[in-house]
Structure formats: C-alpha cells, structure tokens
Amino acid sequence: MNKPVLECTGIAAGYVKGLNILNGVDLVLNSGEIVSIIGPNGAGKSTLLKAIVGIIKINAGRFYLNGSDKTNTPTYKIIHEGLGYVPQVNNVFPSLSLQENLEMGNRKKMNKKNFDDVYELFPILKERNNEKAGNLSGGQRQMLALGRALISKPEILLLDEPSAGLSPSAVDEVFESIEEINTSGVSILIVEQNARRSLEISNRGYVLDQGRNAYSGLGKELLNDEKVIELYLGKM
C-alpha cells in the first residue's frame, strides 16, 4: 500500500513559454490508493495531469513513475509504461465505433479478456459495440473513455474531472466505477470539482491553490478540516 508508484517533486509547468501555471507542486500516489486533487478554478489541477502525461512541458521539477525519472517523456511512451489518462473533454474518438475506441487503448497489451473485463464493468459498451462514439451521451462517453484507458490494464489511472457535466445518476455511476476499478488494484489520481464527493472515496487528498500545494492530508481529514471547508468545500 505504501510503495510510491507516481511521484512529482517541485513541478513547474504552463501552456505559454515563461508563464508557469504550476509553481513547484509536490505529490505522491502510493500503490492501491485513490488520491484526489482539489482546489479552485485555475489552481492548476488539470495542468498537473497534463504535465505528468507529457501533453505540456515540465519546465522545472521531476516526475517519477515507479521510481524511474519520466520527466517530459512523450505521451504515447508514458502510456506504454502502464499509465492511463482520461481527459475531461474530447475523451473519445467520435468517428470510431465503440469497439474501435477500445482497440485504440494501448494496442500492444490487448487480448479478449481485457475487452471482457471492460464490458463487465460497463455493459453498455458491449450493447452498443458497433455504434459511433459521437452518438453517445456525456455519461456514456465518460464510460467509454474509462474503458479505453482501462483496456490496457494500467497500473495507474489519472482522471480529469470525471463527473463534469454529468447528470446526478451518471455521477453516481462514474464514482461507483472508480471505486470498483480501484478495488481491482489500480492506483487512481483524480482531479475533481466535485471535491466533497471525490474526497469521500479517496485515501488522501491534495489542495492546490495558485499552482502550489496549499493543504494535504487523508481524505476524511480534509473533509472535516475547518479551513478546507471554508475556503474550498463550502458549508453543507
């Protein structure tokens, strides 16, 4: 449980040269954990995930995967190292069928059992197998995106706002799926606006503010922390 599988030290990164959104973020994800990253809009939560998977360049700091330095490794290579990433938007290939979308997830390790496992988790993907992904609803797209990331049996899963724009019932389904995926041994790092819901299922959490670590602690501790409640969660 305590072996770090993903570690970030002093990460600085941004979209424009010379203008960092992240200013020295530290983070550890241990094996088998769910860790949430919460914080206000513009805190750099999604940017951190993009920096980890190599979509944007890390300008300072290091990122380690299972102890080996993977800073600024090309995205497709990081994915082959056992990391799955589900972006917040544009997370399916709309002109491809559901089956083809799943096939696109790390093709090297695929076998029929991987498909069966994903279909067991998300039966709708099997039912609508030959339909174009562009026809799916928001919740169904999220399931397909999760399925695509899971089909290669990643050790670590990064989720960017998995509940954004979903109906309350779809949100429930997605969070149940996340817990189920974690139970199968996948370590999960979630960026989520629905902070309360996310912390409820997390072992630990990090609060980012203006590109820096503001607070960190156990999920339940953060849920009950007066300052975190006042500044980031709001009173119930």
Partner: peptide, 24 residues
C-alpha cells in the same frame, strides 16, 4: 487494418491518440 484505424483516430484527435498510446 490497425494502421488505418489509428489514422482515423489521429484524424479525430491527435492529443487523444497520443493519450491512447498511439505514436501520432
């Protein structure tokens, strides 16, 4: 073919193709 499907995937989104492990 696998390469044909990957071409269609990159056509839909280069970034998502990379995220899926495709060398775009």
């Amino acid at each position: 073919t696998s390469i044909g499907k990957q071409m269609r995937a990159v056509r839909d989104s280069t970034e998502l193709a990379n995220i899926s492990g495709i060398n775009s």
